[in-house]
C-alpha cells in the first residue's frame, strides 16, 4: 500500500474502533454520520462523475427503508432478506426510470428526480402493505455496534467502488459524459448504458444504507423515508468535499455533519443559520469543492479564493 492510501486506511481503522473506545453519544453521532457519508458517496457515483445532479436518491434510500421494513414487519423475514429485497427494489426502480429520466439534462433531470421522490412518497402513504401514512414498526434490537460497523462497511464498499470507477475505463466514460455528453457519444461512449449503470450502482448503495438505518431506528414513515432534505444533504456534502473525487464526499460529510452537530449542541437555535451561511460561503469561495480548495491554496495561496470569485462572478 502506498502512502496515498495510508491515511484513509488509518482513518477507517480508527472509525472501526469507535464502538470500543467511544461512549453512547459518540455511537449515535457516528451511526448517523456514517449513514450520510455513505449516501453522499452513493450520490457521487452518478452526480459527481456524470454531472447528473440527482435530487431523487432519497427515492432509492426510501425503497431500501421500506423493502427492509415490509419484509421484517409484515412478513417476519430476517433482516438480511429485507436488506436484499430493498436493494433489488431500488435497483429495479433505477433501471425502470433510468431510461426516460436520464434523457433529461441539467435542471430538468434534477427536478424530475425530485418529482419522482415526492410521487413515490405519496404513493407509499396510500399503500396498506407499507402501513399507509402511519408507517411501520420494526422489531426492536440493541445491536448498535452491528449497525455502526455495518454502515462503516457500506461506506468503505462505496468508497472502494468509487476508487475503482475513478481509475477505470467506465469512469472515464462517465467523466466524458459530465464534460460534454454529445462529444462523448460521438467518441464511442454508450452514454445511455453508462448513465443507467451509474444510477443503478448509486441506487444499490443508497438502498443498503436505507435498509440498515431502518432497522436501527425501528420506526419509519413516508415523510422520513423519502425526505428530500436528506437528499439535499447528500448533494451538499458531496459538492462541499469535491464531486467526482474518491474521498471528497466522505470528507465533506464528516466536516459538515461535525460542524452541524457542534453548533446544534452549543447554540442549538442558530445551528441552521450557520449551516446555511457555510453553504453560501462554500459555493462562493470553493465551488469545486474542498479537494480543489486544498490543491489551489497549496499552489497559489489565498489568491486562489480571489481568482475563484473572479472566475464566476458577473
Amino acid at each position: 500500500m502506498s502512502s496515498r492510501w495510508g491515511v484513509p486506511l488509518l482513518g477507517a481503522a480508527l472509525l472501526g474502533a469507535v464502538p470500543w473506545i467511544g461512549d453512547e453519544t459518540m455511537m449515535q453521532f457516528g451511526i448517523y454520520l456514517l449513514l450520510v457519508a455513505a449516501l453522499a458517496q452513493a450520490w457521487n457515483i452518478l452526480g459527481g462523475f456524470t454531472g447528473y445532479a440527482s435530487f431523487g436518491n432519497s427515492t432509492f434510500y426510501g425503497l431500501g427503508v421500506y423493502g427492509t421494513a415490509i419484509a421484517m414487519a409484515q412478513f417476519d423475514l430476517p433482516f438480511w432478506v429485507g436488506l436484499v429485497l430493498g436493494a433489488i427494489l431500488a435497483m429495479l426502480c433505477a433501471l425502470l426510470i433510468g431510461l426516460p429520466i436520464l434523457r433529461l439534462r441539467g435542471p430538468y433531470f434534477a427536478i424530475a428526480t425530485l418529482g419522482l421522490n415526492a410521487a413515490l412518497s405519496a404513493l407509499v402513504a396510500n399503500l396498506d402493505i407499507a402501513g399507509r401514512n402511519i408507517g411501520l414498526i420494526l422489531p426492536l434490537t440493541r445491536h448498535d455496534v452491528l449497525f455502526y460497523e455495518g454502515l462503516l462497511a457500506l461506506l468503505l464498499a462505496a468508497t472502494l467502488a468509487v476508487a475503482w470507477i475513478s481509475s477505470s475505463r467506465f469512469g472515464m466514460g462517465l467523466i466524458a459524459i459530465r464534460e460534454d455528453e454529445d462529444a462523448a457519444a460521438v467518441m464511442g461512449v454508450d452514454t445511455t448504458l453508462y448513465k443507467i449503470a451509474a444510477l443503478v450502482l448509486s441506487s444499490l448503495f443508497s438502498a443498503l444504507a436505507g435498509g440498515i438505518y431502518a432497522y436501527y431506528v425501528t420506526f419509519i414513515d413516508p415523510a422520513s423515508a423519502f425526505d428530500p432534505k436528506l437528499n439535499v444533504q447528500m448533494v451538499i456534502m458531496a459538492v462541499f468535499g469535491g464531486p467526482g473525487t474518491v474521498l471528497g464526499p466522505v470528507v465533506g460529510a464528516f466536516i459538515l455533519y461535525s460542524i452541524y452537530q457542534a453548533l446544534a449542541s452549543s447554540i442549538s437555535t442558530a445551528a441552521a443559520l450557520f449551516y446555511g451561511v457555510v453553504i453560501i460561503l462554500a459555493v462562493i469561495f470553493m465551488p469545486k469543492g474542498l479537494v480543489d480548495l486544498g490543491w489551489g491554496l497549496r499552489r497559489m495561496g489565498p489568491r486562489y479564493l480571489l481568482e475563484t470569485v473572479r472566475q464566476y462572478r458577473l
Binding site: 451538499i236 441552521a272 443559520l273 459555493v283 462572478r313 458577473l314
Partner: peptide, 30 residues
C-alpha cells in the same frame, strides 16, 4: 451576493439558493 456566482455551474447556483433558503427560513422563524 448572487452576482458573485452567476457564471458558476448549475449545481452551485442550486446550492447557494438552498443555503439562502435555510438562512431566510431561520431568520423568519427567529
Amino acid at each position: 451576493l448572487l452576482n458573485l456566482i452567476v457564471r458558476s455551474a448549475l449545481l452551485n447556483t442550486l446550492l447557494i439558493s438552498f443555503g439562502l433558503d435555510v438562512v431566510l427560513t431561520y431568520v423568519a422563524q427567529w
